[in-house]
């Protein structure tokens, strides 16, 4: 497609422009927010929705032909993989001793002895990582 013409192409382009907008917001959040966990929140949410919108734009543009199906498949994969990856990284960060940002008010995870111990970063994995879990 070159420049959008016709209502369907304009709608698709609007979806994709919104997607790029959300992507950019997510990246701004990645730069501005203070710690790993907040950055993951902003990054995962905004960039996931942004990419969803881009893929939806492609589906709208091409209909459900080979290209549309690939975009749909991609959407299905992303909706499962992106939150899962975020969760894995957040857990790994906590267990490897990355502290919450100074303004944080609550850490039930450390209170329950699941993540890092103590306020100082341990600099390595905690000794009992992965043990005693159902």
């Amino acid at each position: 497609m070159t420049d959008p013409s016709g209502p369907r192409e304009i709608a698709a382009f609007a979806l994709m422009a919104a997607g790029v907008g959300f992507d950019l917001l997510g990246c701004v959040g990645l730069v501005r927010l203070p710690d790993v966990y907040n950055r993951l929140q902003a990054g995962t949410k905004c960039v996931t929705l942004g990419t969803f919108l881009l893929l939806l734009g492609v589906i709208l543009l091409s209909g459900l032909d080979a290209m549309g199906w690939k975009a749909l498949l991609c959407l299905a994969f992303l909706s499962v993989t992106s939150p899962t990856a975020a969760h894995a990284i957040a857990r790994a960060a906590h267990r490897s001793g990355v502290p919450l940002a100074p303004g944080s008010v609550l850490d039930r995870y450390a209170e329950d002895g699941e993540g890092r111990e103590g306020p100082e970063p341990a600099g390595g994995p905690s000794g009992d990582a992965g043990e005693g879990r159902p």
Binding site: G29, R32, D35, Y37, A42, L49, V105, L106, Y109, D112
Partner: peptide, 26 residues
Amino acid sequence: FIVRSNLDVARRVIDPRLPIRPGIAK
């Protein structure tokens, strides 16, 4: 929910005061 959460995050990220009060609940 996803759209709402994005607008929420966008609002916090753009705000110059960065209104966050993070923590882990269970």
